[in-house]
Amino acid sequence: MRFFVMMIPDVYKRPVPADFAPPADAVEKMGRFNEELVKAGVLLAGEGLHPPEKAARVSFDESGKPTVTDGPFAETKEAIGGYWIWQVKSREEAIEWARRCPAGSGDVLEIRQVFEPEDFGPDVARQERELKEKIGKNK
């Protein structure tokens, strides 16, 4: 099974300068952790994200009309600082990997399982495939 793992860093809880980049030693430590994930055959993807100051949001009202808001967003307490996609055998394995992350004080890792067709049971898996096929055709 696959997990989408979000890093919610303490540093993004407060405003950071637009040219913010994480300190070199933190990057190095995280690089070593990523190396471990790669060696174990677990890491499928992973990237760090620029601060929310540079983000934009596209939100939709009832009529489906989009509105664009530039970051930072006043109401956000937790912003994602990076993500991984891990291929593991169980939720516990993902947690075990997360426990080994060299995160800083106040950082949080959130682990979310990626839906796969089997998760829905045969009927829903079928519906989902039909839906995906439709989406594919409409493209």
Partner: peptide, 24 residues
Amino acid sequence: AARTGVDGEPVLLLDQNRAQWDYV
């Protein structure tokens, strides 16, 4: 995900819906 059709029948490579391929 693209290898089997709605009823579980095999879908040949060229007929597969490429939106269902796993780009990761």
